[in-house]
């Protein structure tokens, strides 16, 4: 049973075609791609999906389910993956399953581990794992606060692309040992490419090697819902984990124009979400 899995919740844009075999074979990665570029998920994702399918010699109608990393992650890139997965599945009439993106890293760890990704604005998304199982819901917070919370919970190891961004906050933490429970069998085409001199090409099932930057591995996400997919369970609604409200300020009363020169009666238009959310002032709105 072929499953297309993807995640766009970090700077990595990641796609994998996974074959869910009957036990004891377990999931098999037929092809995968990852490209590190925080700002181009919208341009990268669809061609990567096409390439992964082509590399495996699979036509889209052969895909029986879609798995999507549902965040948390920066709003704009997260939405690219969510809507792409939902639309691809709807076009084919197959189910789309959402999985917490952090699980794509945490599920491949052992012992107590904190998974940290970049939330921008000097904050991180995070969750705590015990032997690959998430403890509680993911959160967003200042690196120092998250580090203190993890320490209080007895966690001494952190991983994920957010930890290295705040070396001071996470200075006392180690990294988890490479590998972990339930590693996936790799086979067929696995490759990566590096679009713009980012963090470098990745190959294979990401998140399993301590030497390379971690990212939510789509094949791990697929494994986490493999039983549901095989059993044909209803995936439920595909809901993004934003963990933040939109920035929006309600307008105050109109400002006087006569008293001072500057822009009068300026509506208090909201700021954009994240740095990559694309600042869109009223002036760039379409007809």
């Amino acid at each position: 049973m072929l499953v297309l899995a993807l995640d766009t919740s970090t700077a990595a844009c990641a796609v994998a075609l996974v074959e869910l075999g009957a036990p004891p074979a377990g999931p098999l990665v037929r092809a995968s791609r990852v490209v590190w570029d925080a700002r181009r998920h919208g341009e990268l994702l669809a061609p990567m999906m096409r390439d992964v399918l082509a590399a495996a010699g699979v036509r889209p109608p052969e895909v029986r389910a879609v798995v999507v990393g549902a965040g948390p992650g920066p709003f704009t890139s997260l939405r690219v993956g969510m809507v792409t997965g939902a639309a691809f599945a709807a076009a084919l009439g197959v189910p789309a399953y959402g999985v917490c993106s952090l699980d794509g890293i945490g599920a491949a760890t052992t012992g107590p581990v904190g998974v940290i990704t970049d939330a921008r604005r000097r904050e991180v998304f995070w969750a705590r794992y015990q032997d690959g199982t998430r403890v509680g819901e993911p959160g967003v917070g200042a690196p120092a606060t998250v580090a203190a919370d993890l320490r209080a919970a007895g966690v001494e190891r952190v991983t994920g692309p957010g930890a290295g961004l705040y070396p001071d906050a996470f200075a006392g933490f180690g990294t988890p040992p490479a590998g972990g429970p339930g590693e996936l069998t790799g086979s067929g085409e696995q490759s990566g490419s590096d679009a713009q001199g980012g963090s470098g090409a990745q190959s294979g099932s990401g998140g399993l090697s301590g030497a390379e930057p971690e990212y939510p591995a789509p094949e791990v996400l697929a494994r986490l819902v493999a039983a549901d997919i095989v059993a044909g369970r209803d995936p439920g609604p595909l809901t993004p984990r934003y963990l933040r409200r939109p920035d929006a300020a309600e307008p105050r009363g109109p400002k006087a124009v006569t008293a001072s020169r500057p822009e009068p009666v300026r509506s208090a238009t909201a700021a954009t979400g994240t740095a990559s959310a694309g600042a869109a002032s009223a002036g760039t709105m379409p007809v």
């Binding site: 994702l45 669809a46 939405r79 691809f88 084919l92 694309g278 760039t284 709105m285």
Partner: peptide, 23 residues
């Protein structure tokens, strides 16, 4: 385009997914 960047992106990504899935 033109339009709100984040809003456009949702439609463009959806359109690509339909086009790719349907060939």
């Amino acid at each position: 385009g033109p339009g709100l960047a984040g809003a456009l992106l949702v439609g463009v990504a959806a359109a690509k997914a339909y086009a790719l899935a349907l060939g």
